[in-house]
Design a binder for these strands. Structure first.
Length: 156
DNA sequence: GCCAACGTTGGC
DNA sequence: GCCAACGTTGGC
């Protein structure tokens, strides 16, 4: 199996790398975008590497690393009538939204800000740097992953 | 708080 | 199936 690499965005006010460190693992619930859902349903494999990105943060950037533990998990928040992720069109016998379970690996030895990512010419094609790129889960190439690991002060 | 970019919705 | 209106994302 070819290892794959993903960048997953989270707003640290909602769920940060420190939350994941404490929880050790989490269900990546609340994704309501079909492209991102499809990654978690069909593209991801257990063991894939995760780059944990803090969006809507001061500063935004890469805060840590994780691993995909499970894929194709039914997102329970779609059935929670009182929750903000409730989807009235989804039925328990044919759920619409699926998620992955993400395990904690490490906090970045050095936080890697969006500004630093942008300033590195080797990362110029990284999707998260593309203007208007709002997708909350993005595939990352092996080459980019290795560069990001090094810049974060991690063993590759 | 602003706003560009993009995804979704719904009238036709 | 088109596309205008609307809602959301997320950097700044």
């Amino acid at each position: 199996m070819i290892p794959k690499y993903w960048l997953m965005k989270s707003e640290p006010d909602v769920y940060s790398i420190d939350h994941l460190k404490k929880d050790r693992k989490t269900l990546w619930t609340g994704v309501r975008n079909y492209q991102a859902r499809n990654f978690m349903m069909t593209e991801m494999q257990p063991g894939d590497a995760v780059i944990f990105y803090h969006s809507n943060a001061e500063p935004p950037g890469i805060a840590g690393f994780g691993k995909i533990l499970k894929t194709k998990q039914v997102d329970p928040t779609q059935f929670d009538k009182k929750g903000e992720y409730y989807d009235p069109k989804s039925q328990p016998d044919s759920p619409r939204w699926f998620c992955a379970e993400v395990g904690f690996e490490a906090k970045a030895a050095q936080f890697l800000s969006l500004e630093e990512l942008k300033s590195n010419p080797e990362l110029k094609d990284l999707l998260v740097l593309r203007k208007g790129q709002r997708l909350s889960i993005q595939p990352v190439s092996e080459a980019h992953f290795k560069i990001i690991r090094e810049l974060s002060g991690m063993k590759v």
